[in-house]
Design a protein around this nucleic acid. Structure first.
Lengths: 238, 238
DNA sequence: AATCATTTTCTTGTATACAATTCTGCCAAG
DNA sequence: CTTGGCAGAATTGTATACAAGAAAATGATT
């Protein structure tokens, strides 16, 4: 059992991050320090520190003397994020194929089986969770601490989008079948196959998701008449 | 001419970053808020905000209630950082080979020529600067804003190590000859060649540098007798 | 009526004051 | 000599107060 590590700024960061991920704070929304501080029952000092952290993570944009706004993510940018993610995961896979121990394999297989169960049960929420374990097992298998950190951070940043993705028709079964190929390559120690299959696994998610967002955006644009100055449509899961 | 954008926390971050890069603040050193605030002539508030930013960048480690220390980078970790950097640059190269416009090519060639001049003049400082322009031209050529951001951030983080690297014998000439191959692949639009050559270009730097550090570390270990608890040798350019 | 200048208000940036926790040094007991 | 606990000091975390810049509102001028 882990004791929570205090420092309100830390908890605030998580709370605000959550609010953004769930759409309570919509993209483009202006985050006023005084108002947020009141809402969370703290002073402005820890709140500012939380905002600075979120800014470093790219989740909010902090312009000097002009306050903080929730970062807006265009479909184009989201695609670029998934492309980078695909490259990082591919790298994890390449190293993991060469470096995973028997114990690592066991952890991977356990996560893989759990994915299979969730897939059979048609349970997207369970699959979402087990899928995270599965991918993290691969990151860990790379045995490169720095790579693990970078990839985990990126994974976290894309989390809300991934989650939405799993709800589209047949995605669970397709995803699991892709996992099968990835596991085979990793167990066989085939670095190039593991790398390439992971890259595709992620790229496909990104492309599908970007398509989804683009169609949503065009739908919205049609209903919005001519809303004057929104240079790039703001997109985020509900 | 650009006006500097106020906010002391921002300037503080740069100042501290510089002090760490130049070794004034050595790895493992405890950064005391009150003392630093006095030294820079500001209060603790903007100083803390600067430390939080540096923590997000991985340059300092911030443990709750226990203060900030300059991050220690082991040779192992440094190698891992260069490996990730190599992958990012390779990705930039792959995209750039397909996407660079004539204008992009012109910018690249200008930087390449400047590198050649610095190389001929045996001027490491000039080469260091032109080399940055050269690599940034490739990042920009990828036309992926997110990738450009990530790669630039990583480049910045490795900057002090790169700089030291350029002083080893013949490295300038070797580096420039590698640049030649990269430019050829980019102009020819050969994505795989550009990607692979960039990956090697960076990996070689990382490996050489890690070797250098490891030998320095073992030298130090020998002279240090048995210094009790330094689990990983702290490494940073002077 | 529209536009520009000015003043007012509001928000952010910084400093200081206070609270809470951790580290240090000392003393005592084993 | 070591170990354990207990003040005291020192340092970090948070709140509040103040300063400075930006947005908003007001009024004067064309």
């Amino acid at each position: 059992m882990k004791i929570k590590s205090g420092t309100r700024a830390e908890k605030l960061r998580e709370a605000i991050e959550e609010s953004i991920a769930t759409g309570t704070f919509a993209p483009g929304m202006h985050l006023e320090e005084t108002e947020l501080a009141q809402r969370f029952g703290v002073s402005r000092t820890p709140l500012r520190e939380a905002l600075i952290q979120l800014s470093s993570m790219g989740i909010v944009v902090l312009r000097p003397r002009r306050g903080a706004v929730v970062a807006e993510v265009t479909p184009q940018r989201l695609l670029e994020m998934f492309e980078v993610m695909a490259e990082l995961e591919a790298m994890c896979g390449r190293l993991a194929a060469r470096r995973m121990s028997d114990a690592d394999h066991a952890v991977l297989m356990r996560a893989h089986m759990a994915c299979e169960a969730a897939c059979s049960a048609q349970d997207p929420d369970a699959y979402y969770h087990e899928n995270e374990q599965f991918h993290h097992a691969i990151y860990a298998g790379s045995h490169s601490d720095f790579l693990i950190e970078q990839t985990t951070a990126m994974h976290r940043r894309l989390r809300p989008y991934r989650r939405l993705q799993l709800r589209v028709r047949n995605r669970l079964a397709t995803s699991f079948s892709e996992h099968n190929g990835i596991v085979d390559a990793l167990i066989a120690g085939d670095a190039e196959a593991a790398s390439e299959r992971l890259r595709l696994h992620i790229l496909i998610q990104g492309e599908r998701f970007t398509d989804l967002l683009a169609s949503l955006a065009s739908l919205r644009a049609r209903s919005d008449a001519q809303s004057s100055e929104t240079p790039a449509p703001l997109i985020f899961p509900s």
